[in-house]
Amino acid sequence: MIQMQDVWKTYPNGVMAVNGISIYIKKGEFVYVVGPSGAGKSTFIKMMYREEKPTRGEISIDGKSLSSTKEKHIPFLRRKIGVVFQDFKLLPSLSVFENVAFAMEVIEESKANIRKRVMNVLDIVRLKNKARFLPHELSGGEQQRVAIARAIVNNPAVLIADEPTGNLDPETSWEIMHILEEINDRGTTIVMATHNRDIVDSMRKRLIAIEGGRISRDEIRGTYSYES
């Protein structure tokens, strides 16, 4: 599903963020990515959806090479990848329904398909009753659930969650995690960067720990720490 082969990333200022990483993530896995600030975790995540390009090495998702894909084809590639951010990135003037529908409108889905699918995913994230609300009328947890709905509305093969509980209180964080687990149970591969020790230690999944741009630990049911 997701494969990195000897991937390196050096920024123009000379900082080496990723240092020869090779991994394989199977279809349907739920993977935590942990590591201290500056370890290369964010770069590792961003390269999966081509926000960053590796300096060298090969990255592929579902058999498609990200490294060799032309810029004009990146939007089509990203249809297979949903991304959830820590700060939600909702459009403030659009309703909950419109925020989620926007992801389908850009790929020119029919209005009938949009309405049916949007309401289905709002049901999954338990926000069907708030379809007409604006983002500022929602709690932080509800806004994150809208962001999740938008990320999965086009049935991506992979969902990448970058600190999805980082701005949320513990109770709300658990609500988000249970929703992500349900999405994973439906077959979506999930890669989640997190600093949340309680979640990692309680909901044991595969854990990839990154330190100094390298993978320091890769365990099937890992607990929260960086070093082996």
Rank of each mutant, 00 (worst) to 15 (best):
R206L: 09
Y226C: 15
G40D: 06
G82N: 07
N113K: 09
K80C: 00
E108L: 08
W8H: 15
H195G: 12
T10N: 08
E211P: 00
I160H: 01
Y226H: 14
A101R: 00
N184V: 08
A149G: 04
I21Y: 03
R132S: 12
E137Y: 09
S22Y: 13
L159C: 06
D185F: 04
S228T: 10
E211F: 01
T10K: 14
I81L: 09
L134C: 01
Q5V: 13
N120A: 11
A131Q: 07
L77F: 01
Q143E: 11
R221Y: 15
P164A: 13
M177P: 01
G57E: 03
L94K: 09
M177L: 14
S139P: 00
E29D: 13
L66W: 04
L122A: 13
F30K: 01
N120Y: 11
G35I: 12
K130R: 15
N167G: 09
V18H: 00
I160P: 00
R115S: 10
E71I: 10
V84A: 10
D198C: 12
S65L: 13
T10V: 15
T172S: 14
S65P: 08
V118D: 04
F85W: 12
V15W: 06
L127C: 10
K130N: 10
I176F: 06
G141V: 09
R117I: 11
K89C: 13
V83Q: 02
D201P: 10
G213I: 09
D87Y: 14
E211C: 08
N155V: 04
E51S: 07
N154D: 02
V7A: 03
M203R: 14
G38K: 15
T223P: 03
A157W: 03
L94Y: 05
F133P: 00
K205E: 12
